[in-house]
């Protein structure tokens, strides 16, 4: 890739696995888990966060020499809030049903710790292009977990993916349901999101021993 140097590629790829914002940095869990019962909502949330984090990182990085450090939190919050309002209005205009589903969780992107965390840790000290890549990378790492969780919850909970009944029709008993398969309605309830993330962490840390925490 001519556009991206090796260092830049690392900025994007690291957050996908070894420096994942959710499972390693423990950021941005707040608004993530509640909306993962459907794959579609997870994908939209991931895209929204990518938009806010990518652009927000650029704006903060451009302003990094102007912002007085005492009021930087308020400046950061205003930048994020403005971007989130844009996302919210776009969703309300073009995907009204989905914006109802996401309800207050779009607003909660403002206080999503990933965003503040990346502003503080990266954008305040780096150039706009690198900050942009960092934002995209971290949002992708976040989105990856969201999509994995959303995939399993929708598949096992309602037997569909993105609304398509991939396992057959439960009412007319076709596909897998013909053999007595049942949906696990429990997957749709909120506690399962936590447990799935716990399992993802388990798998990830079993594969990469360096990530194991010693208490």
């Amino acid at each position: 890739m001519a556009l991206l140097s090796k260092k830049d590629t690392k900025l994007i790829l690291d957050p996908l696995s070894d420096d994942n914002p959710i499972t390693i940095q423990v950021l941005g869990i707040c608004s993530a888990l509640a909306i993962t019962a459907e794959l579609e909502a997870s994908i939209v949330m991931a895209i929204s966060v990518m938009f806010v984090l990518g652009l927000g990182n650029v704006v903060i990085s451009l302003l990094r020499n102007i912002i007085p450090s005492k009021i930087r939190i308020i400046v950061q919050l205003i930048v994020v809030a403005a971007l989130v309002i844009i996302v919210d209005l776009i969703l309300k205009a073009f995907a009204y049903e989905l914006s109802k589903t996401l309800s207050v969780f779009v607003g909660l992107i403002i206080t999503n710790c990933i965003i503040m965390g990346r502003f503080e840790a990266f954008a305040l000290a780096n150039r706009p292009w690198r900050s942009f890549l960092d934002g995209i990378g971290n949002a992708a790492g976040y989105g990856l977990i969201l999509i994995i969780v959303g995939f399993f919850r929708e598949l096992l909970g309602s037997g569909s993916l993105l609304g398509f009944k991939v396992l057959g029709d439960p009412i007319s008993k076709t596909g897998l349901y013909a053999f007595g398969y049942e949906n696990n309605g429990f997957m749709l309830l909120s506690p399962m999101a936590l447990i799935i993330v716990g399992l993802i962490i388990w798998v990830q840390r079993s594969k990469n021993k360096a990530l194991i925490e010693e208490e």
Binding site: A34, A37, E38, T101, S103, V104, S158, P170, I171, N183
Partner: peptide, 23 residues
Amino acid sequence: IQTEEINQKNIDSTQVVEVSNIT
């Protein structure tokens, strides 16, 4: 109740339980 319904009737809609909690 919704979970029970989902279990019993296998409602195919992908209605999100928590979201209905909120809305």
